[in-house]
């Protein structure tokens, strides 16, 4: 047997197809200039799925966004969090995600179908090839050339995987942050500070300005007061009020806040030296301004 170098030379001289300048010109002209008769458009299952899913997501996103943008006035201003139909806060950015995902899938599906159709149109006479045993690579019967690998599916899979992982991470972060958020925002904290100051100073006007129209003040000992008129009549006399510790808050609107306070003096028998209490507040966004919708006090003096 010959040496390896000679064997390699003989082998590659045997199998390598040579390309001439004329081959190149023919290739350019056939691929760019001459098109085969158009085949009937075939919709691949994955492309059909992508288009269908994209359309569904787009329509769903449009419906949700439309409802958010134009259905706000018909809703209840104090409805709970988490409802897609809730008008509070208007259209939040994450709502755009279904629309974006749908549109991207739609575009990918459309491109894939176009590429499939274009690929079926291209081809023509290729350079002369040598006779040889058929290999296992797919060959286009009409053009006689190797079929090109379509990478759109691969990229689409990567994109979908990234999108799914991203959405999962976002959802996880959303759930985690909403369940562990205990510190009040600066705006809510300022509202409650103003509220307690007005209460301590017995400043009825300032106090009532912080309340919603259907505000409820409730204690077990003195009962339930609804609306500004009832509450205004009950605002107590001036008293020293000291906050004990910080605020604790849950929710993303409405916000539910608890705080402990010490009252220097209360006009109740047996509590002349002061008393501690715990208050629960419900804060809502009313027309862009935070207001106190509910206040309930617990403690030895309030029941």
């Amino acid at each position: 047997m010959l040496d390896v170098e000679r064997q390699l030379r003989d082998y590659f001289e045997e199998v390598v197809e040579r390309v001439t300048a004329e081959d190149v010109r023919v290739r350019v002209s056939t691929e760019r200039g001459v098109r085969l008769p158009e085949r009937r458009l075939r919709l691949r299952p994955l492309a059909a799925g992508a288009i269908g899913f994209g359309l569904a997501m787009t329509l769903l996103g449009i419906v949700v966004v439309t409802d958010r943008l134009f259905g706000a006035e018909a809703g209840d201003a104090t409805s709970g969090p988490g409802s897609l139909m809730s008008p509070e806060g208007g259209a939040t950015p994450w709502i755009v995600i279904p629309v974006a995902v749908g549109l991207v899938l739609l575009i990918f599906g459309t491109i894939f179908v176009r590429r499939t159709r274009n690929a079926s149109q291209q081809g023509g006479t290729d350079m002369q090839t040598m006779e040889r045993d058929p290999l296992a690579a797919p060959i286009d019967n009409e053009t006689g050339v190797l079929q090109r690998r379509n990478r759109v599916l691969g990229w689409l899979t990567v994109f979908l995987a990234v999108a799914v992982v991203g959405l999962g991470l976002w959802l996880a972060a959303e759930v985690t942050s909403s369940s562990t958020e205990l510190a009040p925002t600066a705006e809510v904290e300022q509202l409650l500070t103003d509220y307690q100051e007005a209460w301590a100073n017995a400043d009825s006007n300032a106090y009532l300005a912080l309340l919603t129209d259907n505000f409820v003040l409730e204690t077990s000992r003195f009962g339930r007061f609804t609306g500004p008129e009832q509450v205004a009549a009950w605002v107590p006399a001036r008293q020293g009020l000291e906050q004990l510790g910080g605020y604790s808050m849950i929710g993303t609107g409405p916000w539910y806040v608890t705080v402990a306070s010490h009252h220097d003096s209360v006009p109740f028998p047996g509590f002349s030296e002061g008393v501690d209490s715990v208050s629960v507040f419900k804060i809502v966004d009313q027309g862009g301004t935070l207001k106190v919708a509910y206040h309930k006090s617990f403690g030895p003096a309030f029941g």
């Binding site: 082998y11 199998v15 045993d133 290999l135 190797l146 079929q147 090109r148 690998r149």
Partner: peptide, 12 residues
């Protein structure tokens, strides 16, 4: 961009 044959180098 081309599909590759299962055997890159054919027998001769």
């Amino acid at each position: 961009r081309y599909f590759r044959p299962t055997k890159l180098f054919p027998a001769v």
